[in-house]
Amino acid sequence: MAKPKQVTPLTGEALLLKVKELEHLSKEEKAKACGYATVTKNNQARVNLMKFYNALMEADGGILEAKGSGKGGRSASYRVSVQKNGNLLIGSAYTQIMGLKAGDELEIRLGRKHIHLRQVDAEDEE
């Protein structure tokens, strides 16, 4: 069985122009059209939305979703809730934005109505 031709994903200004041109499509369709889809060993199409989002952010962002489509995953809301066991869970969207990796240490600073998280290494350099 022949392997399908790999398409080079769009980046930068070309990506922004293509996304704007395809504003009527869903985010999955936009990602496919921009080259952010692969075919698995089982011949199933797989859209890599994370790489697509990261490329968009690098290219200075863009509108991902047509208005009123109602499809898609969650986005970072910059709000979290205390879980029943009293823990606060900070999702991977936030750790990626902060550039955190496994094992990074954070200092917790409590304010009157807020919590600040600061990387220990970043604060030492200041």
Rank of each mutant, 00 (worst) to 15 (best):
G86P: 05
K30M: 04
Y94M: 15
G86R: 01
L56Q: 09
L56A: 11
L22T: 14
S75H: 14
T38S: 08
V19R: 07
H24A: 06
A59G: 02
T95G: 01
N43C: 10
L25C: 09
N48T: 02
L88F: 06
D60V: 12
G62S: 06
E58A: 13
Q44C: 03
K30N: 07
C34H: 06
E65M: 09
R74L: 12
G61N: 09
K84W: 07
V47G: 08
Q83Y: 07
G62P: 07
E65D: 12
D60C: 12
G72V: 01
A31K: 05
Q44F: 01
S26F: 04
F52I: 08
E29P: 09
N87L: 00
T95W: 10
A66N: 14
I90V: 05
E28M: 15
G73N: 08
K20I: 13
I63E: 10
I63V: 07
S81N: 10
G35S: 13
G86T: 01
K41R: 06
K84S: 11
Q44R: 01
K32Y: 13
M57I: 14
G86W: 02
S81D: 10
K51C: 11
V80I: 03
E29F: 05
I63L: 08
K84M: 11
V47P: 09
E29R: 08
A33D: 03
M50R: 11
N43M: 07
A76K: 13
A37K: 05
N43A: 11
S92M: 15
A33C: 08
L56H: 08
N54A: 15
A33P: 00
V39W: 01
L25W: 08
M50K: 12
E58V: 10
A76C: 12
V39C: 00
N87R: 00
Y36D: 03
M57A: 15
R46S: 04
